[in-house]
């Protein structure tokens, strides 16, 4: 289309437009427009307000309910778990106390037993030691007596060999004094 042809056509339309009113203000169709507006607007209004909006509202309310119910349930379970933990801690503390008590009792019993046994063994040992000592001292005494006799015999024999006369009592005295000084 050339520019000239276009201008000619718009001019023709312009001429038409002078006769016919501007379409938006043309009263020819006002009644039809209002009638069909009422039909479709009311149709949409009733479809929305009777069916669609209540459904959407129901879904939204249901979701809000289920979310709050879930949150309540979560809070309830959380409380439950906190309580369970508290109970567990309490039972742990009780068990620990009982264990300590048991171990203390056992320790005390063991100590008593140990002390008892130690005492008995000590007493037995002391008795045995005493007996042994008695026997040792007796043996020693016997041995010492024998030593004195042997010394006396030896001294007498040496004196006899030397040809010195001495009473048996003097020899005995001298020997025992020497033995005493030497221990």
């Amino acid at each position: 289309m050339s520019l000239l042809a276009f201008l000619a056509e718009t001019a023709a339309h312009g001429g038409e437009a002078v006769k016919a009113p501007f379409p938006a203000f043309d009263p020819t169709w006002f009644a039809s427009q209002l009638f069909w507006l009422a039909v479709f607007f009311l149709g949409m209004y009733f479809a929305l307000s009777r069916s669609i909006l209540p459904k959407l509202e129901g879904t939204l309310a249901q979701r809000a309910n289920s979310i709050s119910a879930d949150l309540d349930e979560a809070a309830r379970l959380n409380n439950q778990s906190v309580e369970a933990q508290k109970a567990l801690e309490l039972r742990l503390a009780q068990a620990r106390a009982r264990a300590r008590e048991t171990s203390d009792t056992a320790k005390a019993a063991a100590e008593t037993e140990l002390a008892h046994v130690t005492g008995r063994v000590d007493a037995e040992m002391a008795l045995k030691l005493e007996r042994a000592e008695t026997r040792i001292s007796k043996l020693r005494e016997d041995a010492m007596k024998n030593v004195e006799q042997i010394s006396l015999d030896a001294a007498e024999a040496m004196i006899a060999r030397l040809g010195v006369k001495a009473s048996r009592a003097d020899v005995k005295k001298a020997v025992s004094s020497v033995l005493e000084t030497r221990g």
């Binding site: 169709w29 009644a31 039809s32 427009q33 009638f35 069909w36 507006l37 479709f40 149709g43 949409m44 479809a47 929305l48 069916s51 669609i52 909006l53 459904k55 959407l56 879904t59």
Partner: peptide, 25 residues
């Protein structure tokens, strides 16, 4: 009260809106 092109397109938009919202609901 003729059914005009205006009425037709009003019907189209009403059907589209109700179709969309009806499907959503």
């Amino acid at each position: 009260l003729a059914f005009t092109n205006s009425s037709f397109w009003m019907l189209v938009s009403t059907v589209l809106v109700l179709g969309f919202l009806g499907m959503a609901a």
